[in-house]
Design a protein around this nucleic acid. Structure first.
Length: 467
RNA sequence: GGCGCCGUAGCCAAGUGGUAAGGCGGAGGUCUGCAAAACCUCUAUUCAGCGGUUCGAAUCCGCUCGGCGCCUCCA
């Protein structure tokens, strides 16, 4: 089987066939940079990261674009409240976004275009939409005319005729021909302060949806492969993107739409009032290590609401410790002759891994294959069948798995400030053990245990780790 | 009102027509000075409940109960 995933357009799992053989062009709706992104946002970006990593694993040449929304109501409000320029304000949050995403191992996208750097492209698109009679200008603002686009509502499976129209329509949009029409360009208002662009459309700023249409078209072209985002963006954001782009190109914006479900924290939607609203930094402060955050955020299938439990840390630590133990076991293995057996195991488990990922990115099942591989590799170590050749194969296999999983390589080998002290105590204990002075040996162990250090006596060597 | 999702062991979580993956936890065992880790065995006759379709259902259909999402700017 080959790669296939659930396409929101068809609501079916479809085989993935790229536009250009061997190449994939994908676009992810990135963060609005008015505040530090929370772990729910990152869960969505992590899904894109997982797909990006897996496509690379499969050998595709991937172009991944993630936009940065640096112009909208919230960024304007924030910048004006602080009395600094929109640029300075958003620069700050863009830096924090990159800092956080690197911590949890989200790979670099090919580019991170900013909305404010694509105003001419957006203006051009509005002009084209106006000439195509898909848009109209009123009082310095431009609106997309929904009636002009018959398939509007299709992505979200909304029947526009029966849609409730009412109290949620903002009062400042009374000039629209139809309340359902959406803004492409917004006329400057007092509250915008210094934030405005003087263009052929007048003084104002772009509507939210327009940037993604303009930038995805510019960098990925017509009918690119995969567009990703959170489920909440299906309507109206992605629907509007489709209307804007296709109104100009008359071709599908993207051929596959992949949407990730929301993250719940302790069974509930994240919200500041419930006190379950966390950023990556918050998690680090609560004692989570980067790899633990990544593992926790990816604990379920991407189309399933995933419950992130603050109390799940111990369970996650234990699971990750299995991988570490396997690495240590392989490192200290001193046997031989297991190559044929190991080759079978590698082939079988890697096939399972691929089959699972191919099947709509079934990450939990792929992870199960990796856990099974770990158990079998451990068994071979125990049976003294692992020598240098076998070790090389097993380690290379784990690295290949981790090129997709991405948590094993996170935060490894950070020098422990107390390492010298700890190792001195271990030396004391080992001296005592040599002379069979068990009381003294246990005293050293107890002291280390009290400091949160776990010892493991291996053949000829004692290794340690923090709990 | 419209569209749609979910309910699997103590916990997390796959599986969506062929007889319940994986992780954590728990019980017993091997190994070990003691441990730890690893490994082995066991830990859901059963998939919210009740009916139905089928040779066969956690998987399909209906109803009920219980959670939840979207319906104009929230990942």
């Amino acid at each position: 089987m080959s790669l296939r995933f659930f396409n929101t357009l068809s609501r079916k799992v479809e085989p993935f066939v790229p536009r250009d053989t061997g190449k994939v062009a994908m676009y992810t709706c990135g963060p609005t940079v008015y505040a530090r992104a929370h772990i729910g946002n990152f869960r969505t970006f992590l899904v894109s990261d997982l797909l990006h990593r897996y496509l690379k694993y499969l050998g595709y040449d991937v172009t991944w674009v993630m936009n940065l929304t640096d112009i909208d109501d919230k960024t304007i409000k924030g910048a004006n409240a602080e009395g600094i320029s929109l640029r300075d304000y958003t620069d700050k949050y863009i830096a924090l976004f990159h800092e956080d995403r690197k911590i949890i191992g989200i790979t670099d996208a090919t580019m991170y275009p900013r909305a404010t750097e694509h105003i001419p492209e957006m203006v051009k698109m509005v002009e084209d939409l106006v000439s195509a009679k898909h848009a109209y200008l009123v009082d310095g603002s431009a609106y997309f005319k929904i009636d002009s686009f018959p398939s509007y509502g299709q992505l979200a499976r909304l029947n526009m005729e029966e849609m409730r129209v009412g109290e949620r329509v903002a009062s400042d949009e009374y000039e629209k021909e139809d309340v359902r029409d959406f803004a492409l360009w917004k006329n400057w208002e007092e509250v915008d302060g210094p934030v405005a662009w003087d263009t052929s459309l007048g003084k104002g700023r772009p509507g939210w949806h327009l940037e993604c249409s303009a930038m995805s078209l510019k960098y990925l072209g017509k009918g690119f492969d995969i567009h990703l985002g959170g489920v909440d963006l299906i309507f109206p954001h992605h629907q509007n993107e489709i209307a804007q782009t296709e109104g100009v190109t008359h071709e599908p914006l993207a051929r596959y739409w992949v949407h990730s479900e929301h993250l719940l924290v302790d069974g509930q939607k994240m919200s500041k009032s419930l006190g379950n609203f966390f950023t990556v930094t918050d998690m680090l402060e609560k004692g989570w290590r980067p790899r633990e955050i990544r593992y926790g955020l990816l604990s379920g299938h991407y189309r399933q609401r995933t419950n992130f439990q603050a109390s799940g840390l111990d369970s996650i630590k234990q699971a990750l410790a299995r991988f570490e133990a396997c690495a240590v076991n392989l490192e200290h293995a001193d046997g031989k002759g297991g190559l044929p057996e190991l080759r079978d195991i590698v082939a079988r488990r890697e096939q399972e891994f691929r089959d699972a990922m191919d099947d709509d990115l079934n990450y939990p099942e792929a992870l199960a294959a990796v856990f099974n591989f770990v158990r079998e590799a451990n068994t071979l170590c125990q049976e003294h069948k692992i020598g240098s050749e076998e070790r090389a194969l097993a380690v290379a296999t784990m690295k290949r798995f981790d090129s997709v999983l991405g948590f094993l390589s996170l935060d490894e080998a950070v020098a422990d400030p107390e390492a010298a002290e700890i190792e001195a105590l271990i030396e004391v204990r080992n001296e005592a053990r040599k002379s069979k002075n068990w009381a003294e040996a246990d005293r050293a162990r107890d002291e280390l245990t009290a400091r949160g250090i776990i010892l493991e006596d291996r053949a000829g060597k004692t290794i340690w780790r923090r709990k």
